[in-house]
């Protein structure tokens, strides 16, 4: 009886090991199963999800106009003080004073990409871009001004 148990023990053990080896052997012989992406080489064909949260950007149209009113809703919504908006007063053609942004400062190094600023924005002035290659040699380069130089607010946005 003891011997029978002993032999079944050995047999079951070895067969369970062979089962595992068959699985790994299958993958060894089937090169098609390889799933690795060769990242820097496939940059041209790399497709990211369209909602991917890479960094905050401010879209500008062809006239170098954005839709940011400088309401600081995003600044208030941000949990870690990533956004700082500096406002100025523009003089409209009618001679009235109008509030506008001077600089939309965005600190990428502090951003957790939580998307709260984008949901808070009433005029859809900022959005998430899929760019994820953020490495720079100087930390100060991570502090960005999102509004382009000379840009102004689009007509009709309050």
């Amino acid at each position: 009886m003891f011997l029978k148990d002993y032999i079944t023990d050995v047999f079951n053990g070895v067969s369970s090991l062979l089962k595992g080896m068959r699985k790994t052997g299958y993958y060894f012989t089937h090169g098609k199963e390889i799933i690795t992406e060769q990242y820097p080489d496939n940059r041209a064909t790399l497709k990211l999800a369209d909602r991917f949260k890479g960094e905050v950007v401010m879209p500008h149209d062809e006239n170098n106009e954005h839709t940011c009113t400088g309401c600081t809703a995003c600044e208030l919504a941000c949990p870690n003080g990533t956004i700082k908006i500096i406002t100025k007063f523009d003089i409209t053609p009618e001679g009235k004073k109008k509030k506008a942004i001077d600089a939309f400062i965005y600190r990428l190094e502090m951003c957790t990409l939580c998307n709260l600023c984008i949901t808070a924005c009433p005029s859809d002035a900022i959005k998430m871009s899929a760019n994820f290659e953020h490495s720079v040699f100087d930390r100060s380069k991570l502090t960005k001004v999102l509004n382009k130089p000379g840009s102004k607010i689009k007509e009709g946005i309050e």
């Binding site: 790994t24 993958y27 060894f28 090169g31 199963e33 390889i34 799933i35 690795t36 060769q38």
Partner: peptide, 13 residues
């Protein structure tokens, strides 16, 4: 290389 093939990756390349 053997490890890479078994682990469905490419290994040193």
């Amino acid at each position: 290389k053997v490890a890479a093939r078994i682990q469905i990756r490419l290994g040193p390349n």
